[in-house]
Amino acid sequence: MTPPTTRTWSRRGHTPIVRVRGRSRRRLSIAALTCYKPGRSSRLIYRPRPDTRPDGRKSFAWTDYRDLIQAAHHQLDGPIVLVWDNLNTHLAAGMRRYITEHDWLTVYQLPSYAPDLNPVEGIWSVLRRTILANRAFADPEDLITTVRQGLRRLQYRSDILDGCLAGTGLIRTPP
């Protein structure tokens, strides 16, 4: 829960100190899809997941990603072309089976170590530079609430979502 610091100041000769109440081993995982459709405004679909799960798992399982894709398919009401990175849960056998079983889903893998081609990385960058910058969180719930508020604000800013896609150099229209 150490806050990302973008800028700080102090009197000349004094080192600025950002105080944090304590360290916590809790974490928040977030899965997000930036959705682009010609003729429509861009959308952001996300699911936060705190590490307090009954199964003890601290990150998303392939079934969580499957559920997110199903929710996106339901919300967007059309076929999905998914471009994602090489996270191990994206490459799981269950996820590969799920992809082959659904004809409305097409998946392209990004090359290894290519965050500059992933529009969602731009979303995380905007979030870190705006609502999460220079802030010490009181507890994990404060962090979760703040992240959800930031993502909710970005959800309705299609200009920012379009900028994240433009930053990748990827095109919006299918080949």
Rank of each mutant, 00 (worst) to 15 (best):
L76V: 14
I80F: 06
H74Q: 14
Q75M: 14
Y65C: 02
R57I: 11
G56F: 13
V81Y: 07
N88P: 15
A71T: 15
Y65E: 03
L76P: 01
V83T: 14
W62F: 05
G78V: 11
S59N: 08
H74Y: 13
A72I: 01
G78T: 13
D85R: 01
R57W: 05
D67I: 04
A61P: 01
L82D: 14
I69D: 01
D77W: 11
I69F: 02
T63M: 03
K58R: 15
G56V: 10
G78M: 12
K58D: 13
N88K: 11
G78E: 12
F60Y: 10
T63V: 06
A72E: 01
D85N: 04
T63W: 04
G78P: 08
N88L: 09
G78W: 14
P79Q: 13
R57S: 10
I80E: 06
D64K: 07
N88G: 12
D77N: 14
H73R: 12
T63C: 00
D64L: 11
Q70F: 01
A61N: 07
L82N: 11
T63Y: 04
H74K: 15
W62G: 01
Q70A: 11
T63N: 00
W84K: 00
N86M: 00
F60C: 07
R66D: 03
A61F: 04
G56L: 08
T63F: 06
V83N: 08
V83W: 07
F60S: 05
V83A: 02
W62T: 03
V81P: 00
L68E: 00
S59M: 11
A61K: 13
R66C: 07
R57M: 09
T89M: 07
P79F: 12
H74F: 14
L82S: 06
R57T: 12
A61T: 14
K58L: 10
L76Y: 05
I80T: 06
G56D: 12
A71M: 12
P79C: 11
P79E: 14
G56H: 10
S59L: 08
Y65L: 07
S59T: 13
R57N: 10
D85H: 01
H73M: 03
L76N: 11
W62R: 02
L68S: 02
L87K: 04
D64Y: 04
S59I: 06
I80S: 07
V81R: 13
D64R: 06
A72W: 00
T89F: 15
F60D: 09
Q75F: 11
D85A: 01
A72S: 05
N88M: 07
A71Y: 09
I80G: 03
D85Y: 00
G78F: 12
W62V: 01
L87N: 07
Q70C: 08
D85G: 03
Q70N: 07
P79Y: 10
S59E: 05
F60K: 07
A61L: 12
D67L: 06
L68W: 03
T89E: 04
H74E: 15
L82R: 04
A72F: 00
G78R: 13
R66N: 06
V81E: 13
H74S: 10
Y65G: 01
T63I: 06
H73L: 04
D64V: 08
H74W: 15
